[in-house]
Design a protein around this nucleic acid. Structure first.
Length: 550
RNA sequence: GCGGAUAUGAUCUAGGGGUUAUGAUAUUAGCUUCCCAAGCUAAUUGCCCGGGUUCAAAUCCCGGUAUCCGCACCA
């Protein structure tokens, strides 16, 4: 079988220090890869380019929170329920089921397994060997009776649970965006696609907090005529931001704007526009927290369209959950022009009654009651852990009073662009991998955008001559000293050295020859065209800086 | 997780129950070389892991791991 691009690329990546399989000397483990010297630089360059888009262009703030996350956080966010389920396969119907959905009521999962009482809801045959689909890695904080925790499946929760602090930091004004770049962990059932599906992976996430009544974006008008590459599950089509929002293809300005920002980022990072598109999630595809979601997909020859960025409208889901579970005030305020005097009815919980009746859940119920709008005076219903409970009348009293209100409280909505850095990195490599024949030999070039190339310039003395070495080494030091990554190489023929640089995506080479001794000039050679120019040594730095920034 | 296939230096590969495991590429050192993987000389690196059969296993058998292809799962 001939090698495909993936094979060739992964071979190159391993040989030249981009990507290595992790733990290889002990047999390796699926879903883990090391970034080698060049891979680490490339990844960091991609992340820093991303920061430019979010911190500089969009004025977001960045935070950094632990990867080990307390059980309670992920319980509140819904991840505990959503990520751990016993699953069982029916060989006849070739379908999988979540165990808790198909066993009879009143029978515990343990009992059902023990007594072999699991039946397929379709064909009624007995099912065996349930296995847990637990996508979170669990751990404990502290020894002995430690607290339960998980390695985070996304960086987003770290941002949500700091919302009240960040809202104050931003002087209580919406909208604002918070970003975090870091590792996330998912114990994938079967990671078999190299760096595309990792168990430990890097993500860059932004959470933009909005007033739900105003999901417009201040940058929208500047870009409203720009075009987005959309795909409606049938065909690809270009829409301007404005038209997409007006035609309700995209729900709001903010979502459309962040899609545009994503598109721009990916293009500057070196993604091939022909292998790029946005696809809207169908209703049944949406994650448990999402209201609307667009994926930026990148095309790979082996894997087809890969979801590399998800831009989701998470509405108020997460903040609501954390308000409810933690009792923290995570509301934002919409100020009135003039303060209002209003008569309000408020529920005052009677804890003396609530406590004995509901025990552990009483605290949570108290918070819900206090924040409840009292409309009619019939029943007070509270939804907790998915069940609706009626609160008896003796547990609360209702008071009417006048209050001066300066504004109204609301839970902000969140738009979340979430980027899989490793997937993007792979696609960039694949999109920029060029293979040619040169003198009957395979010739490989990585046409990486200079801004993300791990090495910006190769510094090469043309031939074996100490005078040339000396000049080349001075240039090499000068460039590194001014922040340009270089690679000095004086071994072998010049052609071989150019080839080596081309293969790892170095966009420029500076070659020092005998004329350099006489007139302080060198050759600059361009990777993509193999063309050369003659430039002065004292111009190198500025010329390179300019070319790298473009 | 289930079924099938595969596993030899960094890469591609030949071979194969018994002395020193093949070739190419790459890499390193030297010679040569004034602009695109040239040439010459030398050097470096290997039978996936564990167990069994055998006087002897890289080779045969079993198990594990990884990779690939289906199925399932997942984003």
């Amino acid at each position: 079988m001939p090698l495909d691009v993936y094979d060739k690329l992964m071979m190159l990546a391993k040989r030249r220090g981009f990507i290595y399989p992790s733990f290889e000397i002990y047999g390796g483990s699926a879903g883990f890869y090391d970034y080698g010297p060049l891979g680490s630089r490339l990844k960091e360059n991609i992340e820093n380019l991303w920061r430019k888009f979010y911190i500089l262009k969009d004025n977001c703030i960045e935070i950094s929170t632990p990867t080990i996350t307390l059980y309670e956080v992920l319980k509140a966010s819904g991840h505990v329920e959503e990520f751990t389920d016993l699953t069982v396969d029916c060989k006849k119907c070739k379908q999988s089921f979540k165990l808790e959905e198909i066993i009879k009521e009143n029978i515990s999962i343990e009992k059902a397994i023990k007594n072999n009482e699991i039946t397929c809801p379709k064909c009624k045959s007995k099912l065996k060997n349930p296995y847990p689909v637990n996508l979170m890695f669990s751990t404990k904080i502290g020894i002995g009776q430690g607290r339960d925790a998980f390695l985070r499946p996304e960086t987003a929760q770290g941002i949500f649970i700091d919302f009240h602090l960040l809202y104050r930091y931003k002087r209580e004004k919406l909208p604002f965006g918070v970003i975090q770049i870091g590792k996330g962990y998912r114990n994938e059932v079967s990671p078999r696609q190299g760096i595309i599906r990792l168990r430990e992976f890097s993500m860059a996430e932004a959470e933009i907090f909005f007033d739900p009544k105003d999901k417009n974006h201040s940058n929208f008008n500047s870009f409203k005529d720009k075009e987005l590459y959309l795909y409606d599950n049938e065909k690809e089509k270009k829409y301007s931001l404005e038209k997409a929002v007006n035609d309700k293809i995209i729900n709001n300005q903010a979502l459309a704007y962040y899609m545009y920002l994503t598109q721009e980022f990916l293009i500057s990072a070196g993604v091939d526009l022909k292998k790029f598109r946005f696809r809207k999630h169908a209703e049944n595809e949406l994650a448990h927290y999402a209201e609307e979601c667009w994926d930026a997909e990148l095309y790979s020859e082996r894997f087809g369209w890969i979801e590399c960025v998800g831009i989701a409208d998470r509405s108020a889901y997460d903040l609501n959950s954390h308000i409810k579970k933690s009792g923290t005030d995570m509301y934002a305020t919409r100020k009135y022009d003039k303060p209002k005097i209003v008569e309000i009815k408020k529920i005052i919980p009677k804890m003396a009654e609530l406590g004995p009746l509901f025990k552990k859940k009483a605290g949570e119920i108290k918070i819900i009651l206090e924040n409840m709008e009292v409309k009619r005076l019939d029943k007070i219903l509270v939804k907790i852990d998915g069940k609706t409970i009626e609160i008896p009348e003796k547990c609360y009293s209702i008071v009417e009073k006048k209050e001066k209100q300066t504004g109204e409280k609301f839970v902000p909505h969140v738009i979340e662009p979430s980027y899989g850095i490793d997937r993007i990195l792979y696609c960039i490599l694949e999109h920029n991998y060029i293979e040619k024949r040169k003198k009957d030999e395979d010739y490989r070039i990585l046409k990486l955008n200079p801004i993300i190339s791990p090495i910006k310039v190769g510094v090469l003395p043309l031939i074996n001559d100490n005078r040339l070495y000396k000049i080349a080494k001075e240039i090499d030091f000068l460039l590194r000293d001014s922040g340009i990554e270089t690679y000095y190489d004086d071994k072998g023929t010049i052609g071989r050295r150019y080839a080596r640089m081309d293969e790892v995506g170095t966009p420029f080479c500076i070659t020092v020859d005998h004329d350099s001794i006489e007139d302080d000039s060198v050759t600059i050679r361009y990777r993509d065209s193999a063309k050369q120019d003659r430039i002065k040594i004292n111009e190198i730095k500025n010329i390179l800086k300019e070319k790298i920034m473009n």
